[in-house]
Simulated assay, not measured.
Amino acid sequence: MAKKQHKKAPNELANNRKARHDYSILETYEAGIALTGTEIKSVRAGKINLKDGFARVRNNELWLENVHISEYKQGNQFNHDPLRNRKLLLHKKEITKLAGVAQDKGITIVPLKVYLKHGFAKVLIGVGKGKRQYDKRETLKRKEQDREMARALKNRY
């Protein structure tokens, strides 16, 4: 059986599907990323991996950590470090709100997707509460039931 290809929106560069599986997302925020020249070229080429990424508040600034942006092939000795921490650009009120929420136990700030908006790279970050194993099974069961109902309705009409 062939694997189903997930369609991306035309401006979507990367999607973290595992985040919605491992966390129940409570709130989302759109943030800009401070990138260097070779980083933005790699991001536009879709060479970004959000799988293990998370955000952390340090010194009243929000930092995106553990996100891999591959080196730009045509870059020279000024190429970037693929795993460096990148600053996220949000309003100060939003950062203080996120700092307060992130201090609670079991709450994590995770990147959900990266996309282009008016030529700028943006990250959709979510405040997530970790799911337990039984929560994940329940979510999968509910999705399967919804699919069954949709199939039944489709065949009916």
Rank of each mutant, 00 (worst) to 15 (best):
A2R: 14
K3A: 09
K4G: 10
Q5Y: 09
H6Y: 08
H6R: 08
K7I: 14
N11M: 02
N11T: 13
E12C: 05
A14F: 04
A14G: 07
A14P: 04
R17D: 14
K18R: 14
A19W: 05
R20C: 06
H21M: 12
D22F: 04
Y23R: 04
S24K: 09
L26I: 15
E27I: 06
A31C: 13
A31Q: 05
A31S: 14
A34D: 15
G37P: 00
T38K: 01
T38I: 02
K41A: 07
K41D: 08
K41R: 13
V43Q: 01
R44G: 03
A45N: 10
K47N: 14
I48G: 05
K51N: 15
D52F: 06
G53T: 09
R58K: 11
L62Q: 09
L62S: 06
L64G: 05
N66W: 00
V67K: 03
H68F: 06
H68M: 05
I69C: 05
I69H: 01
S70C: 09
S70P: 03
G75T: 09
G75V: 09
G75K: 04
Q77S: 14
Q77G: 07
F78V: 12
N79H: 10
H80M: 06
D81F: 12
D81A: 13
P82H: 02
K87Q: 09
K87G: 03
L88E: 07
E94L: 06
E94M: 10
E94T: 14
I95L: 07
T96H: 07
T96E: 09
K97S: 12
G100Y: 05
G100A: 07
G100E: 13
V101W: 02
Q103E: 15
Q103L: 11
D104Q: 15
K105P: 08
G106F: 03
I107L: 11
I109M: 01
I109G: 03
L112P: 02
Y115V: 04
K117Y: 10
K117R: 15
H118V: 02
H118P: 00
G119A: 11
A121K: 07
K122S: 03
L124A: 07
G126V: 06
G126H: 03
V127A: 04
V127S: 02
G128M: 04
K129H: 12
G130D: 00
K131D: 04
K131F: 02
Q133M: 11
Y134I: 10
Y134C: 00
L140P: 00
L140F: 10
R142E: 14
Q145W: 06
D146R: 15
R147H: 11
R147E: 12
E148G: 08
A150E: 15
A150N: 14
A152L: 14
N155H: 14
Y157G: 13
